[in-house]
Amino acid sequence: MIKMQKADTDPIGFGLRYRATRHDPKGEWAAWQKLYPEIQFSVKVDIKIRGTGLIR
């Protein structure tokens, strides 16, 4: 996530969701562009192992 943020990319679409939920697209988009480089991410991963490594 941090590498994408430093590269100024948003492949997950956080910016699109931000723009979709705001009413002033020009002012809010400028605010988003200032906020995005400084956002701290907290990622939670839940993994379930379904097998021993067999390929189907």
Rank of each mutant, 00 (worst) to 15 (best):
R22D: 00
W29S: 12
V43S: 06
Y36E: 07
P37G: 14
D10A: 01
W29R: 09
G51P: 02
P25N: 03
R56M: 05
I39W: 09
L16G: 09
K3I: 07
I49E: 13
I2F: 07
R19I: 04
K48Q: 11
A20S: 07
Q33E: 15
E28N: 12
H23P: 04
R17A: 10
K6N: 14
E28V: 05
W32T: 01
D8T: 05
I2P: 02
T52A: 12
K3Y: 11
D46R: 15
S42F: 08
I2D: 05
G13E: 01
I47C: 08
M1C: 05
M4K: 14
D10P: 05
T21W: 00
K48M: 06
K3V: 12
L35F: 14
E28G: 01
D24V: 03
K26L: 06
K3C: 09
Y18V: 06
Y36K: 14
D8N: 15
K48Y: 00
G13L: 01
M4V: 06
T21R: 12
R22Y: 03
V43P: 03
G15C: 07
A31D: 14
K3S: 14
H23Y: 12
S42L: 09
F41A: 02
F14K: 04
H23F: 15
G15R: 12
G27D: 15
R56G: 04
F41E: 04
T21E: 09
K34P: 00
D8Y: 07
Q5E: 02
A7Y: 07
D24A: 10
F41C: 03
Q33C: 13
W29Y: 12
P25G: 00
G53D: 02
I12C: 07
S42G: 08
R19F: 10
W29N: 11
G51K: 10
Q40M: 10
I47F: 08
L16T: 04
T21G: 08
A20K: 05
K26M: 04
R56D: 07
T21I: 03
Y18E: 08
A30M: 13
G13S: 05
K44D: 07
R17V: 02
I2T: 05
A20P: 01
H23A: 15
A7F: 07
G13V: 01
T21M: 09
K48H: 07
M4Q: 15
D24I: 03
T9K: 11
A20H: 03
A7V: 00
Q5L: 02
A31K: 15
Q5N: 05
